[in-house]
């Protein structure tokens, strides 16, 4: 049994230590807000916060998460460190009506919240740097960019 802490709660899981954190979150703990997109850290759909840093859950083994703080899309408003950024980002996402299919959006939001927490007035270049790892096949990029700017002003 391995113990992982997700959204400030400990879970005991019976999986091989090399199992990617993504599949522990999705399959074992049935928290499906964190999405599978590529399995190789290429698309960002599975972005979680790992001790506060945006991290691809598909690319870290669960063994590396033992004793660490993991935050998923389901927990961002309950995490006091990021709740203000999370609320601002979500409101901006509503204002700009950002999502299309919505599948990549958990990852986009996790990346955007992490950016806003570190940088309250990101430039276009800052946004590109923070968000280029997150693919959106529907093409919501213009609205994501606008929403991050809106959230930064809030």
């Amino acid at each position: 049994m391995l113990t992982v802490n997700i959204n400030n709660q400990n879970y005991q899981v019976d999986v091989e230590p090399d199992t990617p954190l993504l599949w522990v979150i999705r399959d074992v703990l049935a928290m499906t807000g964190t999405k599978y997109g590529c399995g190789k850290g290429l698309c960002g759909a599975c972005t979680v916060h790992f001790n506060g840093s945006p991290t691809r859950a598909c690319s870290i083994p669960v063994s590396a998460a033992i004793g660490q703080q993991i935050t998923t899309i389901e927990g961002i408003e309950d995490n006091l460190l990021i709740a203000p950024s999370a609320k601002a980002i979500k409101q901006a996402w509503i204002n700009e009506n950002v999502p299309q299919c919505g599948y990549c959006q958990s990852g986009q939001i996790m990346a955007a919240v992490a950016l806003l927490k570190e940088n309250q007035s990101p430039s276009d270049q800052d946004i590109d740097n923070a968000m280029t790892g997150n693919l959106c096949r529907c093409g919501t990029y213009p609205r994501i960019k606008q929403a991050i700017k809106t959230a930064a002003k809030a």
Partner: peptide, 10 residues
């Protein structure tokens, strides 16, 4: 569906 997308409950 926007509220569910934001909450990760889609």
């Amino acid at each position: 569906d926007l509220p569910d997308v934001l909450a990760g409950t889609t």
